[in-house]
Design a protein around this nucleic acid. Sequence first.
DNA 1: GCATAATCGAGACGGTACGTCCCGTCTTCTG
DNA 2: CAGAAGACGGGACGTACCGTCTCGATTATGC
Lengths: 192, 192, 192, 192
Amino acid sequence: MGEERDRGGRPRSEPARAAVLWAVDDLLVKVGYAAMTMKGIAELAGVSRMTLYRWWSTKAEILFEASALDAEEELTVPPVDDPLEDVTRYLEALRHFLTRSHAGAAYRALLGEAQHDPEVAALLAGRDILGDTARAVVSRTAPGADHDRATGLLIGPMFFWVLSGRDPARLDPAQLARSFLAEVSPKDTVDG
Amino acid sequence: MGEERDRGGRPRSEPARAAVLWAVDDLLVKVGYAAMTMKGIAELAGVSRMTLYRWWSTKAEILFEASALDAEEELTVPPVDDPLEDVTRYLEALRHFLTRSHAGAAYRALLGEAQHDPEVAALLAGRDILGDTARAVVSRTAPGADHDRATGLLIGPMFFWVLSGRDPARLDPAQLARSFLAEVSPKDTVDG
Amino acid sequence: MGEERDRGGRPRSEPARAAVLWAVDDLLVKVGYAAMTMKGIAELAGVSRMTLYRWWSTKAEILFEASALDAEEELTVPPVDDPLEDVTRYLEALRHFLTRSHAGAAYRALLGEAQHDPEVAALLAGRDILGDTARAVVSRTAPGADHDRATGLLIGPMFFWVLSGRDPARLDPAQLARSFLAEVSPKDTVDG
Amino acid sequence: MGEERDRGGRPRSEPARAAVLWAVDDLLVKVGYAAMTMKGIAELAGVSRMTLYRWWSTKAEILFEASALDAEEELTVPPVDDPLEDVTRYLEALRHFLTRSHAGAAYRALLGEAQHDPEVAALLAGRDILGDTARAVVSRTAPGADHDRATGLLIGPMFFWVLSGRDPARLDPAQLARSFLAEVSPKDTVDG
DNA sequence: GCATAATCGAGACGGTACGTCCCGTCTTCTG
DNA sequence: CAGAAGACGGGACGTACCGTCTCGATTATGC
């Protein structure tokens, strides 16, 4: 099995792990990513710095572990018969994720860091949360479309709008959903 | 006039200013944004740290001043009669900007920082380089379209693709241009 | 003839010089010698730093110029017929100078600095205020005594007591005066 | 016991402490007190600046810790039957201390600083090296005399002579010792 | 039950950037 | 040409966090 062989010794403290993940989420909201330090996380979690470094290399890793599950859950929408409804709900979930959720704030911080830190970029590349959840929607609503192109069209406008600091209220998920479906429907592909 | 009244004293050193802007660009390429420090910039520019802090607050400000002009120039494409050609050229310029140019690397770094630093976000909001250059293209190729929506559709897919760390080679500017034009052309609005 | 030949041009500003000397004295009392800076002196005097450096090298020089005259005056006691009275008055003046006067505070600061700064030591050596004023008293009250030895016996105890931070109230000038006179009187020299 | 309770954590590094004390002594001799900086001490000792600040507040504190023991030792003279010899030897030790020894240079620097820095003054007041060593001599050679007055007479002349920058060669310890003994002997107290 | 072994907390360590302050010099304009 | 204003390169300040390193204490397993 993939399990680590237990070679004796004191086992890892689960309370400590949980306290760290909670602390990192709390600090992200309260002081922001930049002001969040390994020292601060350790103190808030009531854990020694040594323990942090034993299990994680950087605050990015901790934050990723703390938010990835939540992110995946928040971006997974249950299938709906009506494609327009399906896509709209995904885009609404995406907007909420990027603008209101803790997990989304973590994702934005990490993606921001990834722009100038290759290690963080590799970390994010290892689990493509946006791509995976979008893929599910695309499979249901545009099964024949090119996945890369469809993913870009689905996520791109919303992603750009929010990440570039524009007002999310001026974006209409339903309208974006219609544009997306129009584009990925077979009849629209002029050069088919 | 808007000019600052010169109230005596030694005037600002233009060589020093130029050296700093050059150094910041050089360091971004050589060591990356994260490893770029005020100390490092000062030393490379042959300038005292005090001089840096006198004119700029953060490395983000310096980098923005050093790259904004270049960015604007790189993203400004001359008008072409054929709309498809016009849009395609803009998207090619955008791809080059985001993936290959110094100014684009600076922009990505700043936009990344803006995700968790409100001051950097405000700095970028003050001069909307992507929005402004896109607006010019939209005005020429889709004069009647809603500007916000059109901008999102034009820039979004490419922006998402690159910023999320995906392979830019798998993106076809010409195809994206066609999708954009199809969407913003009046006849395609299903709910007209 | 010792005068500087006036070679034309704007003459030195006497108001500026006075303002500097006043400022240095004021700062010594208000913030202490260590916290007194050339910058602070210039600002308080309403004078440019350039002007300070044009006429003085260090704050020690300014302080010396500002306090030497006062010091000499404070330590000069008028002759009195009774030697005991004469010496007592000098020691009282010395105690007041070292513990209560502005000029004395300046002297203590400069003498302190002289312990680890040869330039300040040279500055003080150039005008031996304590030695000169003591010499006058010694000449009147112990004309035949060895001047070096007499000066040490006259000033030493008080000087040590105050400079080493001891309580000046526990020192009796009259008693010290008696000890001094007993020592420097011919009959007491055992090894005559 | 007076011992600090060891509440866990890595213990203080004795090599680091020793290196700092050595460095501070070395720098005092080589560059002087004024040019001695916390940065310079740290670098010469091969120690981080943080470690300096963790255990000492100022260079004065370090210097005091580095020299107090030596000072006490240098100023402690073994009892001798002949009082004149006893006092003379103390004054010779004092002259050597103030003019030739490392510990004495440190003492002069600190006493100088104490003239304009209350914290250094308090530091010196906490351990009265000159007073304590003089007290021992006074107890042996003038048991009945007033200690304050005797201390001033014993140390004062030499102290003044050296601290005011006069030539120490012009001072004769044996003669000073005779003066001291004559003054503190009961028969000389006129006002008994 | 008792050694072995890995964990945990605490906290000192060398290192480095931070942003500020003052230094002494310079370069401009004004009187 | 003195003087003010103020920018300049230099460098120390004291602080903060980095990631590493001892410590003593704790808590499991395996002989």
